[in-house]
């Protein structure tokens, strides 16, 4: 976001673009990344439900992948993924 003059920003420190934090990517914070294996996924949505960002893509009630723009690599999703499925694994970022 380019820096604006005092004449150009809304008064009162108001932010009038709801949810514009989506323009601030936090994915670079990651040192480990979750990798999702679709074939093993049982679509329980536990990962989405436990993700603090959230950075689990859900389309029409189904997990479709991981939003690496925002995922900070905490590993909760892999941790809550049911053992029998084991559909998310943490791997080093580099």
């Amino acid at each position: 976001m380019s820096e604006k003059s005092w004449k150009e920003v809304p008064i009162g420190g108001l932010i009038v673009e709801p949810g514009n934090s989506k323009n601030y990517k936090t994915g670079s914070w990651r040192s480990f990344k979750p990798v999702w294996y679709e074939d093993r996924c049982i679509q329980c949505l536990a990962c989405w439900n436990s993700c603090p960002e959230p950075s689990i893509f859900v389309v029409e009630g189904k997990v479709t992948g991981i939003d690496y723009d925002f995922c900070k690599g905490c590993g909760i999703c892999a941790e809550v993924c049911p053992e029998k499925a084991h559909a998310i694994e943490m791997e080093p970022e580099f």
Binding site: K22, Y24, F70
Partner: peptide, 8 residues
Amino acid sequence: APGHRACA
């Protein structure tokens, strides 16, 4: 929305 800066 995501993009908040809470710790991992």
